[in-house]
Design a protein around this nucleic acid. Sequence first.
DNA 1: CCGTGTGAACAAATTCACAGCC
DNA 2: GGCTGTGAATTTGTTCACACGG
Lengths: 211, 211
Amino acid sequence: MITVLGVPEVVIDRLPVYARTLAELNRKGRQVVSSQELGEELGVTPAQIRKDLSYFGRFGKQGRGYSVQRLTNELRRILGLDQAWTMVLVGVGNLGRAVLSYKGFTAEGFRIVAAFDAHTETVGRTVGGIRVYNVKNLASFLTSNPADIGIIAVSASGAQEVADLLVGSGVKGILNYAPVALRVPVGTQVKNIEPVLALQSMTYYLKTAAP
Amino acid sequence: MITVLGVPEVVIDRLPVYARTLAELNRKGRQVVSSQELGEELGVTPAQIRKDLSYFGRFGKQGRGYSVQRLTNELRRILGLDQAWTMVLVGVGNLGRAVLSYKGFTAEGFRIVAAFDAHTETVGRTVGGIRVYNVKNLASFLTSNPADIGIIAVSASGAQEVADLLVGSGVKGILNYAPVALRVPVGTQVKNIEPVLALQSMTYYLKTAAP
DNA sequence: CCGTGTGAACAAATTCACAGCC
DNA sequence: GGCTGTGAATTTGTTCACACGG
């Protein structure tokens, strides 16, 4: 298939999962993997994996499977993970501090370059090696230091305002930890991290689960 | 529609979002809302809202809309949010401590009753008002204090072992913060919180975004 | 006349199944 | 013989459009 535009979003959402599992297999010294094995590893049908990959090219060898190394690289290239991404974080409360201290982003090439907060007692501090600035200076900071992604870790009531500010300063992607549905212009990407919503849909099934 | 079983999972995942927005409208003093207005509020088509609700009953009034209060209550009942849920957390590192300090769970009726960790320097401490026990005692704790949900906040390499332990001790739902696809028996619910995967799919669109 | 509830029409996503190649 | 890549078949999910009640 030659299609470049119009890949379903569900497919894009699965690619990082494949990439992560492949990296894990690579670490274990695995050279080749079939869609069957990969599917078993992460609870997905082999056909789905092959179909998903077919949107982007032909990466496998019939009768053999996929080169773990090669497929990992291809997926990282497709997703844009072969480049570094810069991020700013807004809201240095409990949650914000945990995010700043988290090593997982850096390890995958996502670098937080600055943090912002409205409370004077937090401004000027350094958390997880990241300097905290006054949120009043967010726009001017981004003008001289453009960032790709903004992380919102403020309260629900302040989140929309921060989102507007980020979007107005050229940020094209938002990772939103605030429990609110943000309104952003088309073309701006938003991904929500919502543990409470996750729990609230889980209970529907627990309620009726067999003992 | 009278169907009780077989509601699509995507529908269940949307209900908490509706419930949250309705609660917000309620706080603002709003009495009645139409599917049109609710849809605009959170970027969903009115038809989808009506169809989603129709799986569970008839909650609206023709020509008027939905009673905000009534619909909130119905959704909470459907989702099982009219009861309290007890949770245990495993892994009291940076992330685990942030989760223990987070007020959002308690506010929605999800109560963490105990935390567990493998490191002796952490065991015995209290974080966010929750006592930390040795993970060796997890199974015996759960035998005398059954919990509905387990929160996994350990490293990727330890997560499967913890999941097995939780499932073996009667936990029916897992909120997983570890970056790994857990294998659990059918009937056990797993929800993954994956900020890194969220970023990694977002970059696909940022890569090709218009300037 | 407004807005719900819902079959029917449509669109999207998944799975099947097999030709083709290693 | 094994496994990919992919059209076709099937299943699942969304939107339309309108009868009906307030």
